[in-house]
Amino acid sequence: MAQQQPSFLEWLSHHLFACPFKTYFGFDCPGCGLQRSIVALLKGDVIDSIKLYPATIPLVLIMVFTLIHLKFDLKFGAFAIKVAFLGIAVIILINYIYKIYNHQLIA
């Protein structure tokens, strides 16, 4: 198992979905980097994951939290999800604007 896991991750990193947007228009969409970031996270590189796509870890956390909330019906769960969702939307927006300003869209 210990040998299989890295090889699977390597295979995964070479078989990601190509962004249909980028293949047609030539520049990144707001979601580009998400898959690379998830692969980096599976490898254990948290810093790499944040650099590639800052919203990955909050997205994973909000999904796990939503499952917990739907299962156990937390008291402030819905409010927390709303606030976290707004925060993630802002992170994605800022990340995209940052990419535009630093000409990282075409890479």
Binding site: P20, T66, I81, F85, I88, A89
Partner: peptide
């Protein structure tokens, strides 16, 4: 309620396919 919450959260990563 559950479907709308789950779909609402999934809509955020789904923005990357053309929006």
């Amino acid at each position: 309620s559950t479907i709308s919450l789950v779909l609402g959260i999934l809509a955020l990563p789904a923005c990357c396919f053309y929006g």
